[in-house]
Design a protein around this nucleic acid. Structure first.
Lengths: 215, 215
DNA sequence: GCACAACCGGACCAGTGGTCCGGATGGGGT
DNA sequence: ACCCCATCCGGACCACTGGTCCGGTTGTGC
């Protein structure tokens, strides 16, 4: 493992590349044209396959084949399976996070805490409906990793902060964890699919729990 | 798969055995002495290894070796990995279920719904603290299977019934799912270990959510 | 155009859950 | 007391997975 995969790097700064030689002018460099093209192909193929068959049914070999690329290429670009999943998630999650920090008032700052909680719940549900399976796969392939760093901890912090505004006396951190649990990918997809609950009913119950617990 | 493993059979009736030949008298028969002895050894070895190293770090080969038995034996007895995990869980889960249906009042029938909910929450937490890792492994090795049948659905039904008594207007089924989500093995162990939350804080938050949502 | 680093691909590896079948053995019937 | 066969045993074996490696190819700054 001597060449770090770019993993969550993506936009802006380029992480991968030779240790020193960066040519100061021009802009991207550091990555050959075929490399970025192949990266794109892999991402595209992975998204397609995962959506079609469910992430657990897709092996890394399949992704490589579908992308018309060798397995080595996939691994060099994304490090490991987890890296590929994360790369697929990165955009959507960062987008939500940005909206939280500097978006329009219902979701972003400016609205009363209760409404922000409500808006956040809606946004999270939407994200789960769209990428739930992938988030789930990412959690499965690296148990416990998600809670520690990354998107989850940002969400938790956000909820905890809003809760603390509403109920200064409560243990906001623990409460936030409990309120977020049904929105863990595994719980959500399990309830939607295996238990066969429609989205509206689940959202209804969640809203009830969130709002009564918050006040 | 022409010979069903005994899996969750256990006490009383014997599931495994020859299709027809049952000798009417005597009692257990149908299973040779060395078979039951080996079954015991496997169960014991599995419990030991899982507790020591965590279930995910233990391969079926390891279990077989530690039990002083061939791998084939393990698979004939328990069908597959999931079957072994389930067998390990069976006792504890059935015990809780019995207490729910016909136990002493705080947990069993006779107490007011709110108190029964509280007692059930406590019992479930205790079970998770003790077997959380194994339950978790069982859910990981067969995603979604647990929600459909077995212990979870019994718990869900119990909670939903109690909730319906308290709030006839609410969607008790959906609400019960949401309230149980933090007690899914993956969430619970994730919060306890990865997030580093102490049991009391978690229980405190859970009690708050459960009780405010119920009334 | 040149030279060399960056990149590619697929053979390869170790480890897993699960299957199979030739041989050993327990134990009920006689 | 013995015998016979259903039952059981065990470990070689299989398919498949995530992940590594290195000889050969190719883009690209000079």
């Amino acid at each position: 493992m001597d060449e770090k995969a770019d993993q969550v790097a993506a936009s802006g700064v380029v992480e991968t590349g030779p240790p020193v030689a960066l040519p100061v002018l021009g802009q991207p460099h550091t990555q050959r044209a075929d490399a970025v093209r192949n990266r794109g192909r892999v991402l595209e193929a992975a998204a397609r396959l995962f959506a079609a068959n469910g992430p657990e049914a897709v092996a890394m070999d399949d992704v490589a084949d579908a992308a018309g690329v060798g397995k080595g290429t996939v691994y060099r670009r994304f490090g490991d399976r987890q890296g590929l999943l994360l790369a697929l998630l990165d955009d959507a999650e960062r987008e939500l996070q940005d909206s939280l920090l500097s978006g329009e008032p219902p979701l972003g700052p400016g609205a009363p805490p209760k409404e922000r909680l409500h808006a956040f719940l809606g946004a999270l549900v939407e994200l789960l409906e769209q990428r739930g399976e992938i988030i789930r796969a990412s959690e499965m392939s690296a148990p416990g990793a998600r809670v520690r760093g990354g998107a989850y901890s940002a969400w938790h912090q956000h909820v905890a902060l809003l809760l603390a505004e509403l109920r200064a006396d409560a243990d906001a951190a623990a409460l936030a964890h409990v309120l977020l649990a049904p929105l863990a990918a595994e719980s959500w997809t399990g309830l939607r699919r295996s238990a066969g609950l429609e989205r509206e009913r689940l959202v209804g119950a969640l809203e009830h729990v969130w709002l009564t617990s918050a006040r």
